[in-house]
Simulated assay, not measured.
Amino acid sequence: MITAYTLDGTSINIQPLDLKSAVPHNTLWLDIFKPDEQEQLWMKQLFVEELPELDELDDIEASARFYRDKDGLHIHSLFPQRMGKEIDGINVLFTLRDDILITFREDDLGLMRLLRHYMRQDKLEADNPTDLLLEIFQLKVEYISDLIEDGYKTLEGTAKQVLHVGDLHTTMSELMLQEDGNGHIRLALYDTRRALRFMKRSMRQVSDDEQRRWIDEMLYDIESLLPHTQFLFDKINFQLDAALGFTSLEQSKVIKIFSVAAVVFLPPTLIASIYGMNFEIMPELAFDYGYPMSLVMMLMSACGTYYFFKRKGWL
């Protein structure tokens, strides 16, 4: 799907394009989402050099994610996306030129929908491609900040679950999801920092003071968010260790009960096993009160062992 965002005065209009359509002359942003083979052939007219490949979106090398050629600045940026309770990372390729911003992506992104909503409400102030790209990165940083706040709230709930020893399996599953999501958030922050630094270096001659100040503010925000992700990692690991500790404690209690029961019933078992032997000469076998006597001995030995453990504080 190909969508053109055209600039009409101070407003941005959204215009879907088909393969027979030409790119409008006043296009500020061209968004290409899940292109098929025919749409990829159509895209070749937009690039002087080689068309970016879909499998290049996940490359992690800096030289593959941030570079300049005849088609402009190319920036591969990682966006965190919440999907239910999970957080995943979605790569978007930006090609920035003097007259147009081109985005190329394989997955739907909630931030793009939010951006379109702002455009329809005329809440987006961008009159050139660079400002639009910076607006996208600003929304990204704000969204990451919201995800971190959600992480704090979730961990407050899991902490109570761990302390009250509830469903530890559910709690540990939640903590594992938080650990994975926080990893995506931290990776997105590092990736965004690299992208902004690359933009700052590459556009030193063409960007204005306001754009450079904007980039510096976002870099400052990222630096302030990174310690929070580390704190969340530490908090998650602490709660995981605590949950495992409580699990081990509960298991120890069960093992302790079985161990005490085995020791308490050891003397009665010994007495019963002695009188269960089949020797001919056993004086107590002819005793009229031998059976009740053995029962009393087994009961007293069990009670005596239990009392001894209780007095020692082992129960």
Rank of each mutant, 00 (worst) to 15 (best):
Q45K: 15
I75M: 02
M83I: 00
R105L: 05
S77Q: 13
E50N: 15
K34A: 07
D88G: 04
R65Q: 09
K44S: 09
S77L: 14
R105Y: 04
L96G: 07
L78S: 09
I87F: 03
F94R: 07
E49A: 14
G72S: 05
G72C: 01
I32D: 04
W42P: 09
F66K: 04
E37S: 13
I75E: 02
E61H: 15
L73A: 01
T27A: 11
F104C: 06
L109K: 09
E50S: 15
E49I: 04
S63E: 14
K70V: 10
E106T: 14
I32R: 07
K85V: 10
Q40I: 05
Y67K: 07
D55A: 03
L57Q: 01
E106W: 06
R97P: 11
I60T: 15
F33D: 13
H74F: 13
E106G: 07
W29H: 05
R65P: 14
P52E: 03
W42L: 04
Q45S: 14
Q38V: 00
H76R: 10
F79G: 06
D69L: 06
V48F: 15
I75Q: 04
L93I: 00
F47S: 04
L41E: 15
F66I: 07
A62H: 14
L109R: 07
Q81V: 04
I100A: 00
G84P: 02
L54R: 11
Q45H: 11
F47C: 09
L109N: 07
L46I: 15
T27N: 08
R68V: 12
P52D: 03
V48Y: 15
E56S: 10
I87N: 08
K70S: 14
F66R: 00
L41I: 12
R68M: 13
D98G: 09
F94I: 04
R105C: 04
L46N: 10
K85D: 12
L30P: 08
V92C: 08
E86F: 05
E50R: 15
H76I: 06
E50Q: 15
L73W: 10
F94M: 01
E106Q: 14
Q40E: 14
G110A: 02
F79K: 08
E86W: 01
D88L: 08
E61R: 15
V92K: 08
D69Y: 00
L101T: 11
P80H: 00
K85W: 10
D98C: 08
D107C: 03
P35W: 06
H74K: 09
K85A: 12
I32Q: 06
L101E: 04
N26Y: 00
K44E: 12
I87L: 02
T95L: 05
F104Y: 08
N91I: 00
A64H: 14
K70L: 11
A64P: 11
M43F: 07
K34F: 00
D99V: 06
Q38N: 13
D31V: 12
L57T: 01
H76N: 13
R68H: 13
D108T: 05
I32M: 06
